[in-house]
Amino acid sequence: MSLQTQLRGTGVALVTPFKANGDVDYDALGKVIDHVIDGKVEYIVSLGTTGETPVLDKAEKNSIAKYTYLKVAGRVPVVVGIGGNNTKEIINEIQSFPLDEAVAVLSASPYYSKPSQQGIYEHYKAIAQASPKPVLLYNVPGRTGRNMEAATTLRLAKEVENIAGIKEACGDMAQSMKIMRDKPKDFLVVSGDDALALPQIACGFEGVISVAANALPTEFSEMVRECLRGDFEEAKTMNDKLIEAYELMFAENNPAGVKAFMNHLGLLGNNLRLPVTPVSEDLYNRIKAYLLTK
């Protein structure tokens, strides 16, 4: 089965639940995995940045990946996030990480360093050449400080054999449309922005890697499926009901917002690792009020 078939629809960028003492809460992680699979998401992304990977150590990442494979048990495909701004270290991590049960590696564009477009190209080329699995680019300039331009994405798609797709979260519809116009036929393009998933799928995107689907997998994944079926009238009706949820989830911080939702739903404790802290009491109460109206 092709990667485009496996990763069409809704992928969920899983949060990492923590206990009050800061340890990884594997019981809650298992509950979250069952929640999103029962909610009909098409695949799972383990150890994406929504999973607070910058504050996980190597042993924790390794353990979370292995637990996720075991808990998923082949029910849906699993993508693993391995990224950062130290190219050599990413290559070392990819080569030593348990990837046998993953279908692809999702790698965020280098943060903070603000490399040139050539630097971004060389970074991804080196990672792709070292990876035993197909690599998905991840462009999220609001987090990294540097946009990966459409021309760079297309160059990587056409010139580097093991680069299979992109999670595009630039927020720029014109850039998104350029990628869709000029990409290779077998290059997977998915949204990285819940609030823009509907119009981006209308432009040809094949789905979304979602934050919101951690909390609301049934509603969100069905909205995406309606988009992919071409029923945008029904999809809009469903998406309109989710707009407030998107706003609340990202009002202060991700994943603090979605974790507050999930705490209200009884899926996990409202615990994060510094420097991220739980949402304010006011936002927490607004989230609770939203869920009570559902």
Rank of each mutant, 00 (worst) to 15 (best):
S2F: 07
Q4I: 15
T5K: 15
Q6H: 02
L7D: 06
G9T: 02
T10S: 14
V12N: 02
V15P: 04
T16D: 03
T16M: 03
A20V: 13
A20L: 09
G22K: 00
G22H: 00
D25S: 05
Y26C: 02
L29F: 10
V36M: 11
K40E: 15
Y43G: 09
I44K: 06
I44G: 03
S46P: 02
T50Q: 15
G51T: 00
G51P: 00
T53G: 08
A65V: 11
T68I: 00
A73S: 13
R75E: 07
V76M: 11
V78S: 09
T87E: 14
K88F: 04
K88A: 14
N92M: 04
I94C: 04
Q95N: 13
D100K: 10
E101K: 12
A102G: 08
S107M: 04
S107P: 03
Y111I: 05
Y112G: 03
S116G: 07
Q118G: 02
Q118R: 13
Y124I: 09
Y124L: 12
P132Y: 13
K133S: 08
Y138K: 08
N139M: 12
V140A: 06
V140D: 07
N147S: 12
A151P: 06
L154A: 11
L154M: 09
L156Y: 10
K158Y: 04
A164V: 01
I166S: 03
G171D: 15
D172L: 14
A174G: 09
Q175Y: 10
S176F: 12
M177S: 11
I179T: 10
D182V: 14
D182I: 11
K183H: 13
K183T: 12
K185E: 15
L188M: 07
L188N: 01
G192T: 00
A197V: 13
L198A: 10
F205H: 11
N214V: 11
A215Q: 03
T218R: 13
T218I: 05
S221W: 04
R225S: 03
R225E: 07
E226K: 11
C227R: 00
D231A: 06
F232P: 00
E233V: 15
E233C: 08
E234F: 03
E234D: 05
E234K: 12
M238K: 15
K241T: 05
I243N: 11
Y246V: 02
N254C: 14
P255F: 01
A260M: 15
F261M: 02
H264S: 08
H264A: 05
H264G: 05
L267R: 10
G269E: 15
N271G: 02
V279S: 05
V279I: 08
S280V: 08
D282A: 15
N285F: 13
L292P: 03
